[in-house]
Nucleic acid binder design. Structure first.
Lengths: 240, 240
DNA sequence: CGAACCTTTCGACCGCGATCGAACCGTCAA
DNA sequence: TTGACGGTTCGATCGCGGTCGAAAGGTTCG
């Protein structure tokens, strides 16, 4: 009985369209200003301020004052994970609201999901890694295999985390657009960082979409045999 | 932008106190009738019916007609996982709403969380299993160690799942009352089934709380050295 | 200092949706 | 068939909260 009220308190905050848009906009790790979030939410600055206040008071967001701007970000990975799981449920049920939700094609191709990769690229990489026996994913867990550990170390990726005696953990994350699992967790974060550091992908302005560089596409095809079907290097400028 | 609306649609359903109570009541795997859920939600039967209709239409619940009763259950483990993650966020932020939410002591001691154990017993078992090197848990993953595999097989537990070529996966689940991780995922489900099959714990009527039997307490102490501090065999009848 | 900008606060409006009373369908037991 | 019970539908009420206009803090820059 008590748990229900706690759940409702948080879920009610997420349940407003404007606030949900705000949280979704923050799902890439960056911190955004109040006005940027107002634009993302599609409501006025005053309304946005009210929402931001509530979200911050509930510790869903953290705020950082910087000059005359205020940068908001998700308060913790837990919040991101919660949003992921809500999206997973939302994607699971057939045709929620709009038929298929004709969203931005760039987002569908490749985007970040908090600290890891999603979209066609995300599930493509996860598929390739799984098929080559590097990782194993399931609906309630994941792991890096023994061969996977050597694979990553040969690639020059250090999977060990700063935290002491931490294991190498995978986590599945149900892709919102593809409706299939992609790679999240610590390993997923390392993979995203790898792609960014080597210039295989680049972030886009004002969007969670990422662009796959020609070099990136070549590398991924060479190393993993990932065949990004169509529109891979066609760097759609993300009109969102 | 599109994602936000999807998120809001689902979260808005969960965000109503009555509906959240309904979902929370279904967090143990059992299916409950509409009137039982009306009682759990604390609203009238008519209101409950309306809520159940919305939840079922959104595919958060499944309904099964049986005579003049209608049994409702969570539509999928995804929904349970979503509720878990919302509770985790709710537990994370300091003092949400009530000071500490003086909930039922029986629930705090030992309860089910969908298909695994939670409460003091749940985190106690997770701690013991971790300390003995049987499992490893972190905030974004978990695994059964090599010694853990032999441990479970010696215990007569078959961790392999019906699904073909499925790995043995753990998943952490942030305990709502204890604010620490307990064991979920496939292994968590196996552990709960073990405890129930061997009569170590018994379910309570109309509650997610479980009672630890004297034999169960002895076995857990013998096998794992789990010292259930207080009120272990004091089978509080769960006045909820 | 004043102007421009970002952000928040205040106040009022207004619509959505949760709620319950009452009536309406099915099912089960005599 | 009749009555009792479980569950849903209809209709009307009403309060909460999202929304924006106007104005007021703060901050930076000229």
């Amino acid at each position: 009985m008590g748990a229900g009220l706690h759940i409702a308190e948080v879920a009610n905050l997420v349940g407003d369209p404007a606030r949900a848009n705000i949280l979704a906009a923050l799902l890439d790790q960056r911190a955004l200003t109040a006005s940027e979030l107002a634009y993302a939410a599609g409501v006025s600055a005053q309304t946005t301020s009210s929402h931001l206040g509530k979200l911050a008071q509930a510790h869903l967001l953290e705020v950082e004052k910087q000059g005359r701007h205020r940068y908001y970000r998700l308060a913790s990975p837990l919040v991101a994970q919660m949003l992921e799981s809500v999206m997973a449920v939302s994607a699971h049920g057939p045709r929620r609201g709009r038929p298929v939700a004709r969203c931005d094609e760039g987002l569908r191709t490749a985007r970040t999901c908090y600290d890891h990769l999603a979209g066609r690229l995300g599930v493509g990489l996860a598929d390739a890694l799984t098929q080559r026996g590097i990782i194993a994913l399931d609906h309630d867990g994941g792991e890096v295999t023994a061969t996977g550990l050597t694979f990553f170390s040969e690639l020059g990726v250090d999977l060990t985390a700063p935290a002491k005696s931490r294991r190498v953990f995978c986590r599945p994350c149900l892709d919102w657009t593809e409706r299939r699992y992609h790679l999240a967790g610590h390993v997923g974060a390392c993979l995203l960082r790898l792609c960014l550091d080597r210039g295989w992908i680049t972030r886009q302005r004002d969007s969670r979409a990422v662009t796959i560089t020609p070099a990136g596409a070549a590398q991924m095809r060479a190393i993993l045999g990932v065949a990004l079907a169509e529109a891979e290097t066609t760097a759609v400028p993300a009109s969102l």
